[in-house]
Design a binder for these strands. Structure first.
Length: 366
DNA sequence: TAGGCGTGGTC
DNA sequence: TGACCAAGCCT
């Protein structure tokens, strides 16, 4: 047959999901739903924010820690932004954490602690866009919204062999997803499409033989599933350079300060340093030091951000007197691991203090 | 609309 | 080893 009716495809996928769905900490399985267990909108929201551009494996431990510490929206509304940022450290895209807090405050204060149930209303909340609003509406509230993430884009572009490159192809993909989404179990359907993309219809070497939708897949029929989705070419990454200074007090404390409230790594903590020059031949020398001390070169570290590569020259000085500056604060060896330090800063500190972030597990071993 | 915005894993 | 990729949002 040339075409597969969309309802047929929908049923096949839901049936596949019943048998092969992944078990995830934030997910209520089809079996549990049949027993009357309903998804908690707070947990659905939290997981969806964490999962934005982030792998399932990376999210698991953060999700568990967050719901343990802040079990509901009211608890999160009572936390400070700094608490949230410290707990989020390492997960990346820190504006998500700041918007998480904003959203929690807003829902607690203006919605009596209950999320609005429609995708349209959810999309008005901070940090919630097209994808996340549709996902929460479908999974937590049963609205047949078209949930389109990177997985769905790949699955649908292959099913229909869409030749329009992303991101322009998002429009027809959203329409096709809307056609396929059933009024019953829209949340399970969305999660089924995402599970299929994550486990079967993968970017490379998709397991088409195991796919419940292989029968009508046009990309497979053309023997080129990996050629979809088409994508516009992306720009080359520039290199920036800079210097970072690890000031260490006699007790091992490290001097930290807080980054500005806007821009890269907003609100996170850092060690003192130069600006990050877009010029590869810019000055990353000791001359950028925040104050005079016995600075010694501790090596260089490289860190790749989404849109540029950063090469930092690291300098360190020991036995620095605390009175030498009033900026920032001194973080003791025991406190350092709990600071809101992005990975690039942990790399810089580790260049000067190799065991700075090695956990206390060594104590258990000895 | 395109670019800013992190990180870790894979091949 | 570098390039790509992962449940996007905001401006």
């Amino acid at each position: 047959m040339l075409t597969i009716p969309s309802f047929d495809r929908t049923d096949k996928l839901l049936s596949w999901y019943d048998r092969h769905h992944r078990i995830l900490p934030w997910r209520v399985t089809p079996t549990e739903q049949r027993r009357g267990i309903k998804p908690d909108p707070y947990r659905v929201w939290l997981s969806e924010i964490m999962l934005q551009q982030t792998t399932v494996e990376a999210v698991k431990s953060y999700f568990t820690a967050f719901v343990e510490r802040w079990p509901d929206i009211e608890a999160m509304a009572q936390a400070s932004e700094d608490d949230i940022l410290r707990a989020w450290a390492g997960l990346g895209y820190y504006s998500r954490a700041r918007n998480l807090k904003k959203c929690a405050d807003l829902v607690a204060a203006q919605y009596d602690g209950k999320f609005p149930s429609s995708a349209a209303a959810l999309k008005e909340l901070p940090g919630i866009g097209d994808y996340t609003s549709a996902a929460i509406a479908a999974i937590a509230f049963g609205e047949p919204a078209a949930v389109v993430d990177g997985n769905v884009e790949r699955v649908i572009s292959r099913l229909f062999a869409i030749n329009t490159p992303l991101p322009a192809a998002k429009v027809p993909i959203r329409a096709l997803m809307g056609d396929m989404t059933p009024p019953q179990r829209p949340g399970d359907f969305a999660q089924a499409m995402m599970d299929l993309g994550a486990t079967i219809c993968t970017p490379r070497r998709p397991a088409c033989a195991l796919c419940p939708l292989n029968e009508g897949c046009k990309a497979l029929g053309a023997h080129e599933p990996e050629q979809f989705p088409r994508k516009a070419p992306k720009a080359q990454k520039p290199v920036r350079i800079g210097a970072a200074f690890i000031a260490i007090a006699d007790d091992g404390s490290v001097l930290l300060r807080k980054r500005p409230d806007k821009g890269l790594l907003a609100g996170m903590s850092e060690v003192p340093g130069s600006g990050w020059s877009a010029r590869i031949d810019g000055d990353a020398s000791i001359k950028a030091a925040p104050f005079a001390a016995d600075w010694l070169a501790a090596g260089t570290i490289t860190h790749v951000f989404t849109h540029f590569e950063l090469r930092l020259s690291v300098y360190s000085a020991r036995n620095v007197t605390r009175e030498i500056t009033k900026d920032g604060w001194w973080s003791s060896p025991g406190e350092l691991g709990g600071e809101a330090l992005p990975t690039v800063m942990k790399k810089a500190i580790t260049a000067a203090i190799p065991d700075a972030f090695k956990r206390k597990q060594e104590k258990h071993q000895s």
